[in-house]
Design a protein around this nucleic acid. Structure first.
Length: 872
RNA sequence: GGGCGGUUAGCUCAGCGGGAGAGCAUCGGCCUUACAAGCCGAGGGCCACUGGUUCGAUCCCAGUACCGCCCACCA
C-alpha cells in the first residue's frame, strides 16, 4: 500500500513571500523552458497569439496589466490543455510618439535627404558625446537613435511583464521599426503593388496643417467646435439680383468655385445654369443644382470651395469645377494670381487687393480679415450667428483638418468592402457584439486607405521615381525596390540601374521621401511573428494565428487593417478569434489615459498585492466589459492567495496510506469537483475566464475549505487506515485539481504549492505544463451511493453551527447531545456521512428525528446541550 | 442622427422564463492545533420605468428615461 508523502509544515515559510517567489519562479520557468514555443510540433497542436505590441514611448499604467493578463490567462489555460504555445512580444516604436521622444532625448531632427553616417552615436553615450551629435541626422541614423531610446523603454515594460507573470516566450521578440519589420512592411507594399492594390494619386486629401501630413479616415475624429454662420451676399452675373449664402468658413471665399442649392428649392431654381459673382473677388462661378444641398440649412444655398469639407470635394470632382487652392500645406494662405487662367475675375485688380491682406495668414486670421472686408463692402448680411458644429480633426492634432491637394499613396479598399465584410463574419469576436463595430466601420468606409505620411521617422516607401529630361518625376512609373534588397531607404539607397550621382538630376531618379502610415506596419503583426516571405515553413506553422487580443477603440484601425492585409496578401483571415478587453475606468467612470492625468502606475500594486492579487482583479472582468479600478478587489485576491497557501500546507501535511477514495462523503465531494471542472473548462473554452475564476473561487472557498476540509479533518487525522486514506486522498485530489484550475490566473502561488508535493508525484515539474484537470483525474473514484449526500452533510453542519452561533459559543465547542430533524429521505442520505459531520461539529451523541413536514434537504437542530466552557 | 452595450443590495458585479444571489462594506458572535490576512451567523433589494407575450417575467418582445462607447454630422 503506497503511502502519501506528507510535507512537514514546520519546514515551510509562515507566509507566502510573494516578491521572492515571483523572482524565483520567473527564473525557474525560463530554465525549464515552460513558455518556449516548439517549432517542431504541428500547427493544429499549436496555439498562436498575435500579441499587441505596446507603444513603448507611452506610459505604463494599470490598463496594460489588465488586458495583458487576460491574454495570459487564456494562454496558460491553452498550455495546460497541451497546446504548443506561440506567445511573442512586440514593441511598437513606430510613429509620432517615438519621433518626438527621440527628438527631445537627443535634441536632433531628421532630414531624410542627408546621407547615412555609420557609427554616428558611439557607445557609451555620455552626455558629452550626445552634445557632439549633429543637430540634423539622416533617417537611418534617426532610426538607430530610436532603437537606442526605445530599448530602455522596452526594458521597463519587460520587467513589468515578467513580474506580472506573462508567460511570453521571450525568444520571440520584435520591434515595429526593426529590420525584419521594415523588410516585411516593404515586402507587403511590394506584394500589393504587384497585385495592383496600391496606387498613387494627386488629389485632395485630409491634411493636418501642424503635422503637415496626410491622414487616413481611421485617424480622424469629429470634435464639436464653436463657429458662426455668416450670411454673405453674392451677385448674379448679368442681372441686378443678389442672394445670400450661409457659410461657417468665409475665409475660403477666394477659393469659391461654385454655388449650389437643392434642385427642388423654388427659391433658387431660376438661378441654375447662371453664374454668380463672389463678393470682394468678383469671381464668376457656376450655380448648379445638387441633391446634396439641404434646403433647411442656412439659407439653402451655399458656396463650394476648394476645399471647405468633404462635400466640396465631391462637387469639385463631379462638376469638374476649378481648383483654387488658397491654403498651403502649413495651413496659411498662399499667394494666388487673380486674373490669370483658372483665377478669372471680373475685376482682377480689386481681387488682388482684396486678397493681399490674407497672404501668410492662418485660417482664423484669414477669417477675421475676410469678414472685416465683407462688412466694409456691405456684403455681410447681419451679424455672424454663433453655432456649435462638428469639425474633423486628426486624432493627435489641435487644428481642424483641411483638404489639400497632394500626391499620396493609397490601398484600394473601397471596392473590396463586401469581401472584407465577409472576412469579418469568418472571425469569432469575443464578445460577439464587437463584430458590429467592425461591420459598421467597414460599411461606412468613405475613402481608400491613405498609407503615405509626410513624416520622416518610420518605414520608408521602397520607391523611386525616374526623372525626365526636365527633372520632373514620372509618378506613373515608380521604381519599386527588389524584394531581396529590402529594407531600403530610397533617400539614401540608389535604385537598380542608376548611379548615386544621378539622384535628383534630370534623367536620373528621385527617392520617395514619404513613410508608411504606422498601421501599414502594425497591420502585419501576425506576419512579422510568422516571418512571412522570410521563412515559409515557420509562416505555415504560425499563420493564421488563433487569437488577436486588443481593445475596442482600435477595431477600425488595427483589427480592420490586419484583416485587410491578410485578405489582400493571402486571401485569408489573419486569426480565428478576436478577444476584446474593456477599459479601465477611474472611480469617476472616465477612461484612464495619460492625457486625462488619471493614470495609476502599476509597480506599487504588484508590491502591495502580489502579481497574483493584481491578476485576480484583472481576470475578474469579462471580455468587453469596462472595469472600475478598484484596489479592494486586489486585496481580495491577495487573501485568496493566502488562503490557498494555508490550505495547501494543511492538506499536504496530512499523511496516510493511499487506500483509494471510497468513503461516501469523499465520493460525493469528488463528484462535485468533477462538475466544477466541467463548468470551468466550458467557461475557458468560451474565453470566459472571469466565470471560470468565479466558479473555482467559490468552490474552493465554500465547498473545499469551509466544508469538505472541515468535515474530513478529524477522519484524515484519526480515522482507521482505510477511512483516513480516503480522506487524505480526496483532500489531495481536491487540492491538486483546484490548484490547476487556479493556475492560469494565479501562476505563482499555485506553482509554489505544486512544488511542495505534486511536482515530484506527477512528474510535471511545473503546474503550468501539468495536464488540465479532466476525466482522468476522477476515473478511479466510484460515484457516490446517494445523490446529494454532500449537500445534506453541509446542511447539517451549518445547522449545528447556527445553533452554536445563536448560543454565542465557539464553533469548536463540543455538543453532548442534540436532535437532528429532517425529512426521512434527507435522513437517509445523511446517514452514511453523519459520522464525519458529528466529528467535525464535535457532537458526542445525537438523536435522528424524522420530520415529514420539513422540506427535503432541510436539516434542523433541536435542543443542543453544549459542553460547558470549563470542560472545553 | 445611426449602431452597440449597460441600468439588480450602500459599493463592485454575477444570474437571464418559476427560489433574487456573490464579494466588499455594515451589524452580532467566536482564539476553533491550516489560516484572526481567519471562522460562524444576521440585516439589507417594487432586479430603471411603461406596456405586451406567458399559468408565471429581473430574464422574452415593444417603447421611454438615464449612463457609457463606436460611427456620422464642417453650408
Amino acid at each position: 500500500m503506497p503511502a502519501f508523502r506528507a510535507i512537514d509544515p514546520a519546514g515551510l515559510p509562515k507566509h507566502f513571500e510573494a516578491p521572492a517567489a515571483e523572482g524565483r519562479w520567473d527564473a525557474e520557468w525560463e530554465r525549464l523552458g515552460v513558455h518556449a514555443y516548439d517549432p517542431s510540433r504541428s500547427r493544429d497542436e499549436t496555439f498562436v497569439v498575435d500579441t499587441p505590441p505596446p507603444t513603448v514611448s507611452g506610459s505604463l499604467h494599470v490598463g496594460h496589466i489588465f488586458s495583458y493578463t487576460h491574454t495570459d490567462v487564456i494562454v496558460r489555460y491553452q498550455r495546460m490543455r497541451g497546446r504548443n504555445i506561440f506567445y511573442p512580444m512586440g514593441w511598437d516604436d513606430n510613429g509620432l510618439p517615438t519621433e518626438r521622444r527621440v527628438q527631445n532625448f537627443f535634441h536632433v531632427r531628421c532630414d531624410p535627404r542627408l546621407p547615412y553616417e555609420p557609427g554616428l552615436l558611439l557607445e557609451p553615450a555620455t552626455p558629452a558625446r550626445l552634445k557632439e551629435l549633429p543637430r540634423i541626422v539622416s533617417r537611418p541614423n534617426f532610426i538607430e537613435l530610436c532603437q537606442r531610446v526605445t530599448g530602455e523603454d522596452e526594458e521597463a515594460f519587460k520587467t513589468l511583464w515578467r513580474r506580472l507573470g506573462l508567460s511570453v516566450d521571450w525568444r520571440q521578440e520584435y520591434a515595429t521599426i526593426d529590420v525584419r519589420s521594415r523588410r516585411l512592411a516593404q515586402l507587403s507594399f511590394h506584394d500589393l503593388f504587384r497585385k495592383g492594390h496600391v496606387y498613387s494619386l494627386e488629389a485632395p486629401t485630409m491634411w493636418d496643417v501642424d503635422f503637415q501630413t496626410a491622414v487616413a479616415q481611421a485617424e480622424v475624429e469629429d470634435r464639436p467646435v464653436r463657429g458662426a454662420f455668416h450670411q454673405v451676399a453674392f451677385d448674379v452675373e448679368g442681372t441686378s439680383e443678389r442672394f445670400l449664402i450661409a457659410t461657417t468658413r468665409p475665409e475660403l471665399l477666394p477659393a469659391c468655385v461654385g454655388v449650389t442649392a437643392h434642385p427642388d428649392d423654388t427659391r433658387y431654381q431660376h438661378l441654375f445654369g447662371r453664374h454668380a459673382l463672389t463678393p470682394l473677388f468678383r469671381v464668376p462661378v457656376p450655380i448648379f443644382p445638387s441633391e446634396l444641398a439641404d434646403p433647411t440649412k442656412g439659407t439653402g444655398i451655399l458656396m463650394v470651395c476648394t476645399f471647405g469639407d468633404a462635400t466640396d470635394v465631391i462637387w469639385w470632382r463631379e462638376k469638374r469645377l476649378a481648383l483654387r487652392q488658397v491654403l498651403g500645406r502649413n495651413g496659411r494662405f498662399v499667394p494666388v494670381p487673380f486674373g490669370s487662367p483658372g483665377w478669372e475675375s471680373a475685376d482682377p485688380a480689386a481681387a488682388s487687393r482684396a486678397y493681399e491682406p490674407l497672404r501668410g495668414k492662418t485660417v482664423s486670421g484669414g477669417r477675421e480679415a475676410v469678414v472685416a472686408a465683407l462688412r466694409e463692402a456691405g456684403a455681410l448680411e447681419g451679424e455672424p450667428k454663433p453655432i456649435e458644429h462638428a469639425v474633423r480633426f486628426y486624432e493627435k492634432g489641435d487644428r481642424p483638418l483641411e483638404y489639400i491637394s497632394t500626391r499620396q499613396w493609397f490601398v484600394r479598399l473601397l471596392d473590396k468592402k463586401d469581401a472584407l465584410l465577409a472576412r469579418g463574419e469568418e472571425i469569432a469576436w469575443h464578445p460577439d457584439f464587437m463584430r458590429l463595430r467592425y461591420r459598421n466601420w467597414t460599411e461606412n468606409l468613405q475613402v481608400d486607405w491613405c498609407i503615405s505620411r509626410q513624416r520622416y521617422f518610420g518605414v520608408p516607401f521602397p520607391v523611386w521615381y525616374p526623372l525626365d529630361a526636365q527633372g520632373a518625376p514620372d509618378h506613373e512609373h515608380p521604381i519599386v525596390a527588389a524584394p531581396e534588397a529590402m529594407p531600403v531607404d530610397p533617400m539614401t539607397d540608389t535604385p537598380p540601374g542608376y548611379e548615386p550621382a544621378q539622384r535628383d538630376r534630370p534623367g536620373g531618379f528621385s527617392g520617395e521621401p514619404d513613410i508608411f502610415d504606422t498601421w501599414f506596419t502594425s497591420s502585419l503583426t501576425p506576419q512579422i511573428s510568422s516571418a512571412w516571405l522570410l521563412d515559409l515553413d515557420r509562416h505555415r506553422r504560425l499563420f493564421p494565428a488563433d487569437i488577436r487580443p486588443q481593445s475596442h477603440e482600435i477595431i477600425r484601425t488595427w483589427a480592420f487593417y490586419t484583416i485587410a492585409k491578410a485578405h489582400l496578401h493571402e486571401d485569408t483571415i489573419p486569426w480565428q478569434h478576436v478577444v476584446i478587453s474593456g477599459w479601465i475606468l477611474d472611480p469617476d467612470r472616465k477612461k484612464m489615459s495619460k492625457s486625462r492625468g488619471n493614470v495609476v502606475t502599476p509597480m506599487h500594486l504588484l508590491d502591495e498585492y502580489a502579481a497574483d492579487g493584481v491578476r485576480y482583479w484583472s481576470a475578474g472582468a469579462r471580455l468587453g466589459t469596462d472595469t472600475v479600478f478598484d484596489e479592494k478587489v486586489m486585496k481580495v485576491g491577495k487573501r485568496l492567495v493566502t488562503k490557498l497557501f494555508n490550505a495547501g500546507k494543511f492538506v499536504l501535511a496530512q499523511s496516510g496510506d493511499a487506500h483509494g477514495i471510497d468513503a461516501e462523503l469523499d465520493r460525493a465531494f469528488v463528484a462535485r469537483l468533477a462538475t466544477l471542472v466541467a463548468t470551468v473548462t466550458a467557461a475557458h473554452e468560451e474565453f470566459d475566464f472571469a466565470r471560470a475564476l468565479m466558479e473555482t473561487e467559490s468552490f474552493f472557498w465554500h465547498d473545499f475549505t469551509d466544508t469538505f476540509l472541515e468535515l474530513v479533518k478529524v477522519r484524515a487525522r484519526d480515522g482507521e487506515p482505510a477511512a483516513r486514506g480516503s480522506a487524505v486522498g480526496a483532500l489531495r485530489l481536491g487540492l491538486s485539481v483546484l490548484l490547476r484550475l487556479f493556475a492560469p490566473v494565479l501562476p505563482y502561488i499555485t506553482e509554489e504549492i505544486w512544488a511542495w508535493a505534486f511536482a515530484e508525484e506527477t512528474g510535471c515539474p511545473s503546474i503550468h505544463r501539468a495536464p488540465w484537470p479532466g476525466a482522468r483525474d476522477f476515473a478511479a473514484i466510484p460515484a457516490p451511493a446517494a445523490e446529494g449526500s454532500f449537500e445534506v452533510a453541509v446542511a447539517c453542519l451549518a445547522a449545528i453551527n447556527r445553533s452554536k452561533s445563536e448560543a454565542g459559543v465557539s464553533v469548536g465547542r463540543g455538543v453532548r447531545r442534540l436532535g437532528i430533524a429532517a425529512h426521512p429521505a434527507t435522513l437517509e442520505r445523511l446517514r452514511p456521512v453523519l459520522a464525519d459531520v458529528a466529528a467535525a461539529a464535535r457532537v458526542e451523541a445525537y438523536d435522528l428525528e424524522p420530520a415529514a413536514t420539513l422540506a427535503d434537504g432541510v436539516v434542523e437542530v433541536r435542543t443542543p446541550e453544549f459542553v460547558a466552557a470549563m470542560e472545553a
